[in-house]
Design a protein around this nucleic acid. Structure first.
Ligand code: FES
Ligand code: FES
Lengths: 132, 132
DNA sequence: AGTAATGATACCATATTAGTATCATTTGTC
DNA sequence: GACAAATGATACTAATATGGTATCATTACT
């Protein structure tokens, strides 16, 4: 089971590169550095901009900048942006097996897994990854 | 993120039905009870048979029976059969970010998530689900 | 022999993921 | 103001995974 999709993966790499520079960067530059297909990377950065993780400047000399602190960008955030919210606790069996969700022992186990995963994933931030 | 795929889901339901009966059942009967498309269910049961969870008997009066104890059939087992082994700790970033896996702080966090999930999922067995 | 079952396998349909292409809009520079 | 260099928006194609179907061979009971 894949935990991260490729968008998320690329987003992390791009953010790491940008966090290292701190200044406005054009996609062209990042493409050279990261070797990610240009239009694909563009779309990813645009989504990050919409999500307010990046800021952008149009026109000549424009590009993208980090807008949020690296310590405040975690894997869950990025997963949420590119893969939808991390929720493993959706009813596994679509009501066929457990009659009511309140007393379902399955749900409680799954919820624990989710909580655990969320905590861990939240602790992995761009800042943390940068320190290496 | 979907934790279980539909095959797994259906497998659980079928196994529950079979565990309740304990005798040889033909697909036709299960189809009526479970309302799962017949050829699809057939393929699922065949895979379970290959995995030695079920036994089967060909020919008239044949069908499938539970071969393994309900307490020894867990969600991880079924996930492994239908979705491949549960391993979340595959290197997330394909070597681009962490130079060497041994000292990777990410890996340790992810491994913890995986261990936790595995333990929980292993504890959910057909027997346990049946007790309701 | 005939029939009712599974075994094996190939096939089709749909959804998700990965990646591309294009045109509009903004902005700095001459 | 014209031009060039950037992003914004969006629509499209390709590849893969999932969900589901169809078919024929094989086995076994009657
Ligand atoms: S599995 Fe859905 S409520 Fe228990
Ligand atoms: S993310 Fe792959 S080794 Fe750290």
């Amino acid at each position: 089971m894949k935990l991260l999709t490729r968008d998320t993966d690329y987003a992390v790499r791009a953010l790491l590169a940008m966090a290292a520079r701190k200044s406005m960067v054009a996609v062209s530059d990042l493409v050279i550095e990261l070797k990610i297909p240009r239009p694909f990377l563009r779309r990813i950065l645009q989504r990050l901009t919409k999500a307010d993780v990046l800021g952008s400047l149009k026109g000549k000399g424009g590009g993208f900048v980090l807008k949020r602190e690296p310590a405040k960008i975690s894997l869950v955030d990025l997963m949420a942006i590119f893969q939808g919210p991390v929720q493993l606790s959706e009813c596994l069996f679509k009501k066929k097996i457990c009659p009511n969700r309140k007393t379902c022992p399955l749900r409680s186990e799954i919820s624990e897994i989710e909580d655990f995963a969320l905590t861990k994933l939240r602790s992995i931030t761009i800042a943390k990854l940068l320190r290496k």
